[in-house]
């Protein structure tokens, strides 16, 4: 039973990695990062159920808060990228090295 949940978590993580590698749109890349985080959260909750221990749930709660912070900073970076370079593709960030 836990193996099925772990396999689901692994596939979500791999799909997130695929999106980060393949897509050029920064917003979609951000969404795929969220997918990866969710895969990890699912694994943590599955382990928490397996070990009958609430620690994994606390980990997931902290990870939710950090995901919210990460999305905020990521969106700020995207808005700045758009305002300065008029671009929403990851290629535009290559100009950041000056």
């Amino acid at each position: 039973m836990i193996s099925s949940y772990l396999l689901l978590a692994v596939s979500l993580f791999a799909i997130g990695v695929l999106g980060v590698l393949v897509r050029r749109n920064v917003l979609v890349v951000l969404m795929c990062l969220e997918l990866m985080l969710n895969g990890v959260n699912l694994a943590a909750v599955a382990f928490s159920q397996q070990l009958q221990n609430a620690d994994g749930q606390v980990l997931v709660m902290v990870s939710f808060a950090i995901a919210a912070a990460e999305v905020t900073v990521g969106l700020v970076i995207i808005v700045l990228l758009y305002k300065n370079f008029y671009a929403t593709a990851t290629d535009a960030a290559q100009n950041l090295n000056g």
Binding site: N25, L75, Y82, Y86
Partner: peptide, 21 residues
């Protein structure tokens, strides 16, 4: 989180069309 993302998509709307893949 998704409200944040969708609002930013709506705000920057036209920038996401004709995206080079």
């Amino acid at each position: 989180i998704m409200v944040l993302l969708v609002v930013s998509i709506v705000l920057m709307g036209s920038a996401f069309e004709n995206q080079q893949e």
